[in-house]
Amino acid sequence: AKPPKTVTVKVEVTNADGETQTRTVTLTNLPKDLKPGDTVTLPETGQTARIVEITP
């Protein structure tokens, strides 16, 4: 079996106070056609994050 493909992405997350924070997260099994501006759900927090940058 192939190991899951991990991708490092820079995302913007809005916290409970309405502040936008930029975080770098490593995600696995992202859709192939994901692009900056799309939103993903962070598995560890369940927060919705907007992708700023994808590092191949």
Rank of each mutant, 00 (worst) to 15 (best):
L42Y: 02
P4F: 07
T24I: 15
T28R: 13
G18Q: 02
E53L: 07
N29L: 06
T26V: 12
I51E: 00
P4K: 08
K35C: 05
T45V: 04
P43N: 05
T26P: 02
R50Q: 05
T39Y: 15
G18C: 03
E12F: 09
D33S: 08
T24Y: 15
T48Q: 11
V13F: 15
R23N: 03
T48Y: 06
N29W: 10
T8K: 08
A16D: 10
P43Q: 05
E19P: 03
V40I: 15
T24C: 07
E19R: 12
V52P: 00
K10E: 03
L34D: 00
K2V: 13
E12L: 14
P4Q: 12
V7T: 09
T48N: 07
V11G: 00
L27I: 07
A49Y: 06
R23G: 02
N15C: 07
L34V: 11
K10Q: 05
T55L: 15
P56E: 13
T28Q: 09
G37K: 01
T45H: 03
D17I: 08
P56V: 14
V7N: 04
E12C: 06
N15P: 02
L30E: 07
K2F: 13
T22I: 15
V11Q: 00
G18W: 01
G46K: 03
K35G: 05
T41W: 15
P31V: 11
V52H: 02
V13H: 03
P56M: 14
T8N: 06
T55Q: 13
I54T: 02
V9S: 00
T24D: 04
T48F: 09
K2C: 11
V52F: 03
K5E: 11
T55E: 12
V40W: 15
T20Q: 06
A49L: 05
P3I: 05
V40R: 00
K32Q: 12
V9G: 01
T6F: 13
K35A: 07
P31E: 14
A16S: 11
T55P: 07
N29I: 05
G18F: 02
R50D: 01
G46C: 05
L27H: 02
T39P: 04
T48K: 09
K10L: 15
A16V: 09
T26W: 07
T8A: 05
R23T: 07
Q21T: 14
R23I: 15
P3G: 07
G46H: 04
P31N: 12
R23Q: 07
A1Q: 12
K5M: 14
E44K: 07
R23W: 15
D17T: 08
T14N: 05
D17A: 12
E12V: 12
P4R: 07
P3Y: 09
A49M: 04
E44V: 09
V40H: 01
K10T: 11
G18R: 02
E53H: 06
Q47V: 06
E44N: 08
E44M: 09
T6N: 08
Q21M: 14
E44W: 09
T55I: 15
T20D: 02
L34Y: 06
R50T: 13
A16W: 09
D38S: 04
P43K: 05
K35E: 04
T14I: 13
T8Y: 11
N15E: 06
T24A: 03
T14Q: 09
K2Y: 13
V7Y: 15
T45L: 06
K35S: 05
G18K: 02
T48P: 10
K5T: 13
G46A: 04
I54W: 04
T22K: 04
T45W: 05
T45C: 04
A1N: 11
V9W: 02
T20S: 07
D17V: 09
V13W: 15
T20N: 04
Q47A: 05
E12T: 10
D17N: 12
K10W: 10
R23D: 02
G46W: 03
T24G: 01
T48W: 07
T26N: 06
T8P: 01
T55M: 15
R23S: 05
V25W: 08
K5R: 15
V7D: 03
L27D: 01
E12M: 13
E12I: 12
A16M: 09
A16T: 08
T28P: 08
K35I: 05
N15I: 06
P43Y: 05
L27Q: 01
V7S: 05
L34P: 07
A16E: 12
T6V: 10
T26K: 08
A1I: 12
T26Q: 10
V13C: 04
A49W: 08
K2H: 14
T41V: 14
V9P: 00
T22L: 14
T41E: 07
G46I: 02
D17P: 03
K2I: 14
T8I: 14
E19H: 11
Q47G: 04
K35R: 09
E12Q: 11
N15S: 10
A16P: 09
L42E: 02
L27T: 02
P31K: 12
L30C: 10
G37W: 02
K10I: 15
Q47D: 07
T39D: 04
K5L: 13
E12G: 01
V13K: 01
E19L: 12
A1Y: 11
K32R: 10
V40M: 10
V7M: 15
V40T: 02
A1S: 12
P36I: 15
N15H: 06
K32N: 12
I51N: 00
T41C: 04
A1P: 12
K32S: 14
G46P: 01
E53K: 06
K2M: 14
E19Q: 12
L34K: 04
D33Q: 08
P36K: 07
K5Y: 15
D38C: 03
L42S: 01
P43F: 07
T55A: 13
K10N: 03
T8E: 06
K32E: 14
V25Y: 11
T8H: 06
T22A: 05
R23K: 11
E19I: 13
I51Q: 00
I51Y: 01
T24E: 06
P56S: 14
T28W: 08
K5H: 13
T22Y: 15
T48M: 11
